[in-house]
Design a protein around this nucleic acid. Structure first.
Lengths: 153, 153
DNA sequence: GGCTATTGTTCAGTGCACCGACGAATTGCG
DNA sequence: CGCAATTCGTCGGTGCACTGAACAATAGCC
């Protein structure tokens, strides 16, 4: 044998966690809008007029993936995408009225879903859980980008 | 506004965690073999002769994904795939000599990588971290499959 | 003003991950 | 034994996610 116990491997657990979350999302939030799509929409509700690079920074997605996700959202009429007249390189993004409506609706549902997802943990454990994941993720992200700010205003 | 703080959303954090892990894996373990591929190889080192369904259960991947991953591994000569003569539906899988060799090598590297990945946490925090993720993932997986056993012999 | 470097977006390619549908083989029941 | 139901694998389609390369527009320097 010499095989390893994957339950001590954070990477494997992270994948399982994300997968389980994905399933619950489909069941409790929406089959139309995915969690990354919601994250992008959310970033633009918070800061309308961001460009794709800015969105990527906020939600931690790379440029290609942002382009894909934004493409799907604009295709469904949830985002407006306009070339910046001041700087022809960038595309300015903002949620449409429909986008805002959907965002509002999903916000309620995601709260309910997170409740179910974290149900096995006590309130104290939830705080620890979220804090630990964030620390590990932040640290690992900083290995790449030693200059990244810890955006927590 | 009315926007949400994603750092309280476990799904978003799980994605970031997995992403960060993926980057570190490429840097410290291998660019040839991915983490899911290693998980599959590991399951077959532990239990040679499993079929695809069995592998999927062990590593928590669905049948299509197992087929993809197994396809890549057999394509590289790390796995042998033989039709079961007793039951023509299933394909019996086992690591080749090369597969075992690679597995042994990567096992060492993954240990080093996990060390770096978890470096921001104390030993006590690591145990808590892994335990909490596992509990949440287990519970969420059971929402789907109420019959699933908690395989921890 | 003109060249170079930087910055934002896009495109092609690869891999993970799911679902639903389909075909092939086996099992079980009458 | 023979047909139905189950089980395993495959296929097609969708979406996330990255890398590296190409392209366009701007900004900076001489």
């Amino acid at each position: 044998m010499a095989a390893v116990d994957l339950s001590t491997h954070p990477g494997h657990l992270a994948r399982r966690l994300q997968q389980a979350h994905h399933l619950l999302w489909n069941a409790m939030v929406s089959e139309e809008i995915t969690s990354p799509q919601f994250a992008v929409l959310n970033a633009l509700v918070a800061e309308p007029g961001l460009d794709q690079r800015g969105v990527g920074e906020r939600v931690r997605l790379d440029r290609s993936t942002v382009a894909d996700v934004v493409g799907r959202l604009t295709g469904r009429g949830l985002l407006d995408k306009v070339r910046d007249p001041q700087d022809g390189r960038r595309a300015l993004l903002r949620p449409t009225a429909e986008g805002k409506r959907i965002h509002r609706r999903l916000t309620v549902r995601t709260a309910r879903m997170n409740e179910v997802f974290l149900a096995p943990l006590t309130d104290a454990e939830r705080a620890v859980f979220l804090g630990l994941i964030q620390r590990v993720a932040d640290a690992a992200e900083r290995l790449r980008d030693p200059e990244a700010e810890t955006v927590t205003p």
